[in-house]
Design a protein around this nucleic acid. Structure first.
Length: 874
RNA sequence: GGGCGUAUAGCUCAGCGGAAGAGCACUCGGUUUACACCCGAGCGGUCGCAGGUUCAAAUCCUGCUGCGCCCA
């Protein structure tokens, strides 16, 4: 008999207290170098680059979810023997960071202009050193198995060099150009924004109809931005619009200004909208800009970069939102307001960083010509080099990349990568690559690049590009990019474009996994204004990293958002506690991996059943991991752990251990083996608790570097399974009967079972008695009640001495309910079988199945009726 | 306005052609020496509405309605 090693019962504390041990465990992993990848190993590579969080950011639930996913993927591959690299870092977040530091300066009564560009940038670096990157420490608390030795920052020297290199390459290839266009302008940030940095919302506004000109030749236009009329240079109508045909080519007087403007015909005007005549302000509206180009109209800018009106007498110096009512009032005074609609709900663009209403503005900016890049990015997904998970979202990706507008990359900021273009005294232009010098006396373009420009290089710049480093050769293309579907466009599309371009057509990642968005328990978006934000740090404190991670992974159904609430985390915490207690109990009973699991011939039905279930679980988990099905994977692990291992096997194992001798030793080996495998399977999702438990069970160094389980290869014993399921059904029916009869769960009841041999359960009498709390009858046994349980092999009759009055009413109620169900079943089956079309056309196995169901139902009805008839009256 | 997605138990979601499922919540019982963060037993659904295809529809098709998202 195996000695129970003493330390196994004492090593594990009574309860799992994550807060007390997580930090130390994590530091141990880092110190051991488990997360540091070696480019020179001969293992197959696996690489994930962390979508770099903002240097100003802190961990929110969306990060926590994404990190859980990436960590689980990486940890599993590491266990599978891959050279696993998860590479961390941050982006410099141009606008956000500059805003933060400017606010800091403002509190000192300073502006960035007081400091000047160089000193301001130095100040930003100081800020970063002190406050930046809080999120990196929070990632440690989540348990991220990240290679900290490779941490990168988009403004680092190496990455800045990558930015300059690719800019020069694009410029030389004619894919970067400078042009004056209408761009999205944030008057608060005072910079250009790209299309995707603008968020549209339906806002209350006004629709004002204004009469231009006078008399028969007058024309009415409608606008939501009345103040822009100061910059109108035409009125446009549809060429086929009979109402206005006579006016085309004539001029009207623009009110308030005295200017005369032409009426032009343009096919892009919608005759159905408003009056069918539109005012044209080429300097302040993208559509109008196009009309202006087609008709060679001048563009008059009437606002400065802060949104303040710059001309036109009484309106000069007014903010755009003050100017709007002022202009309307002035027009009304002239009797030119024909109609006003207020509120008028229409889509308004807002700055995604500061929510200020975006102003379309005519301005000279740098652009990326995206057409060839976007086409390549689309093709990489179309031809399967990069796979999108879930695949439905690929369509959205195509919609985007196939209709992409050129990308404005210049930003009127100081914090960022300065555009490497220099201007000569006579307007010459030169783009300067790394290691090149601009001609003396030339001046550099003052603008910096969009942060996303450098982030788009992340999958290869972090690995050393443009140098041909060992890391780049080994880990590019990366394996998986994981992110929320909401930033599919920010991340995936741009990384794809630049990755393919810089790396000679090799895609930056093989798989793109897109997870859903985090919502509250009612499915509402989390937002500060709603007050429904859950802070992951709060959950980490109160429930532990494993519970937080398990909750997130368990909710990650492909393509759909995830609702979160306190109860979810508590449920995961409970799961961890269950796992803890089950393992502790197994160890207290001598569970071990020191002795091998005996041959199957030596094992009981229960042993084979739980081992076969474990094999099935291994295969299922592998399949689900490969398909990025995290919710199902967690459910499978949860179900096996709790419903099969804890609820049944551990109870059956108690009986086997009580038997002593070789049976007990075999059971200890099975317990040890199942826990060893189960803990390894759980480790990628819940790394901390599995580390402690796995070491206690196996005595191994660390589950982080343990081998990923594979199925045993033995074929499943289906008759063992049938018998265990028979035990389960019998035990459950007896418990149900006891509960109906009001017998306390713990109370032993004298019982006599017959038909056990026919049901092939003769080996399981002890287990049935233990689980159903039965005891053997004495000589003078007098049954006061009985029940019948139909099993595949035969019906087991259980006679019980309830030693009290029997609740005949409860029994009748139960039997009647069962009878109703059986009768319904019989009717359904007979209806089908009575339909010749069904028996002719349905597959044979389906018909056979229905026949069996009919026979079972008929037998059930007969049996239940007999029992009801035998029941005493009352 | 255009496009996409979704509608299943009180809540959050699986299931996506052949007997309606899970977690949580709820009800009843419980000091069963691993666990009350637990154990045992339950209750709960004409699968949004209306048509159609099929021997068979929660599952496929059409329309409608509600909700959500993306793009104008």
């Amino acid at each position: 008999m195996t000695e129970t090693p003493a330390q196994q019962t004492t090593d594990l504390p009574q309860a799992w207290e994550p807060a007390a041990v997580e930090a130390e465990l994590y530091q141990g992993w880092v110190d051991a170098g488990y997360f540091t990848a070696d480019p020179d190993s001969d293992k197959p590579p696996f690489c994930i680059v962390l979508p770099p969080p903002n240097v100003t950011g802190s961990l929110h639930m969306g990060h926590a979810l994404n990190h859980t996913v990436m960590d689980a993927l990486t940890r599993r591959r590491r266990m599978q023997g891959h050279e696993a690299l998860w590479l961390p870092g941050m982006d410099h977040a141009g606008i956000a960071t500059q805003n933060v530091v400017e606010r800091q300066l403002a509190s000192e009564g300073l502006s960035r202009h007081d400091l000047g560009r160089e000193k301001f940038i130095a100040r930003v670096w100081e800020w970063k050193a002190e406050y930046g990157g809080r999120i990196l420490d929070q990632m440690r608390r989540l348990g991220d198995g990240i290679d900290w030795t490779r941490e990168r920052f988009t403004m680092d020297d190496g990455l800045s060099r990558a930015v300059q290199t690719i800019f020069k390459k694009l410029y030389d290839d004619g894919l970067i150009y400078r042009a004056e266009r209408i761009i999205n302008w944030c008057p608060r940030c005072r910079t250009a924004l790209s299309d995707i940095e603008v968020e549209h919302s339906d806002d209350d506004g006004e629709l004002v109809s204004i009469r231009y000109g006078s008399g028969a030749d007058s024309i009415v236009v409608a606008t939501t931005r009345a103040e822009t009329m100061l910059g109108d240079t035409a009125v446009a109508v549809h060429p086929d619009d009979e109402r206005y045909r006579h006016l085309i080519g004539t001029e009207v007087e623009l009110p308030l200004t005295g200017r005369r403007i032409p009426i032009v015909a343009d096919a892009h005007v919608d005759p159905e909208f408003g009056t069918g005549a539109v005012k044209v302000t080429p300097a302040h509206d993208p559509n109008d800009f196009e009309i202006g180009r087609r008709h060679d109209l001048p563009a008059i800018t009437v606002m400065d970069e802060t949104g303040v009106i710059t001309a036109h007498g009484p309106f000069e110096g007014l903010d755009r939102f003050e100017a709007r009512p002022a202009v309307v009032a002035a027009l009304r005074a002239e009797g030119r307001i024909v109609a006003e609609k207020r509120p008028y709900v229409h889509a308004v663009g807002h700055c995604s960083r500061c929510d200020t209403v975006v102003e379309p503005r005519l301005s000279l900016q740098w652009w990326v010509k995206v057409e060839p890049l976007a086409r390549a990015a689309g093709d990489a997904v179309r031809d399967g080099r990069t796979k999108v998970h879930p695949p439905e979202l690929a369509k959205r990706y195509f919609d985007w990349v196939d209709n992409m507008h050129d990308w404005t990359i210049s930003r009127q900021l100081w914090w960022g990568h300065r555009i490497p273009v220099w201007y000569g005294p006579d307007g010459e232009t030169v783009c300067v690559g790394p290691d090149e010098q601009p001609p003396a006396g030339w001046t550099q373009d003052p603008d910096v690049l969009d942060t996303w420009f450098s982030s788009a290089l992340w999958p290869f710049s972090t690995l050393g590009w443009p140098e041909k480093t060992a890391d780049l050769g080994r880990f590019y293309p990366t394996s998986v990019l994981s992110t929320g579907y909401d930033i599919l466009f920010f991340w995936v599309a741009r990384m794809m474009m630049f990755g393919l371009y810089a790396m000679d057509g090799v895609q930056p990642f093989d798989h793109v996994y897109l997870h859903g968005l985090i919502r509250d328990a009612q499915g509402k978006k989390m937002s500060k204004s709603r007050g429904n934000v859950i802070d992951p740090l709060d959950w980490l404190d109160r429930y532990g990293a494993d519970a937080c991670r398990f909750t997130l992974a368990r909710g990650a159904n492909p393509g759909s958002d995830m609702a979160l609430a306190e109860e979810w985390a508590a449920g995961s915490r409970n799961f961890n506690t269950k796992l803890w207690n089950a393992t502790r109990f197994a160890l207290m009973n001598g569970a071990t991996t020191a002795t091998p699991v005996p041959d199957r011939a030596e094992l009981t039905d229960a042993d084979r059943w739980i081992l076969d279930g474990l094999d099935a679980l291994v295969s299922e988990v592998d399949e689900l991991f490969d398909g990025f099905q995290f919710a199902k994977l967690c459910d499978a692990l949860y179900h096996y752990t709790w419903d099969e291992f804890c609820d049944w096997y551990l109870e059956l194992a108690k009986v086997q251990i009580a038997a002593g001798g070789a049976r007990a030793d075999a059971t200890r080996a099975v317990l040890g083996h199942v826990l060893d495998v189960l803990l390894r399977l759980l480790h990628p999702v819940i790394p901390f608790i599995t580390e402690v438990l796995w070491k206690a069970v196996t005595g191994g160094e660390s589950v982080v570097i343990a081998t990923w389980p594979s199925a045993s290869g033995s074929s499943a014993d289906s008759s063992a399974r049938t018998r265990i399921e028979g035990v389960q059904k019998l035990v459950t029916e007896i418990r149900r009967f006891r509960a109906d009869q009001g017998v306390k769960p713990g109370q032993r009841v004298t019982a006599r079972l017959s038909g056990v041999d026919d049901a092939d359960l003769s080996d399981h009498a002890a287990a049935i008695a233990a689980l159903a709390r039965l005891q053997s009858p004495a000589a003078e046994f007098a049954a006061s009640a009985s029940l019948e349980v139909a099993l595949p092999g035969g019906t087991v009759v259980v006679e019980l001495d309830l030693s009290g009055t029997v609740d005949v009413g409860a029994e009748r109620k139960r039997l009647t309910k069962d009878l109703t169900a059986a009768e319904k079943e019989l009717a359904q089956c007979e209806a089908k079988l009575g339909n010749p079309k069904f028996t002719d056309k349905a597959p044979d196995d389906v018909v056979a199945k229905v026949r069996t169901r009919r026979d079972t139902a008929a037998a059930d009805i007969e049996r239940i009726k007999a029992r009801l008839a035998a029941l005493p009256a009352g």
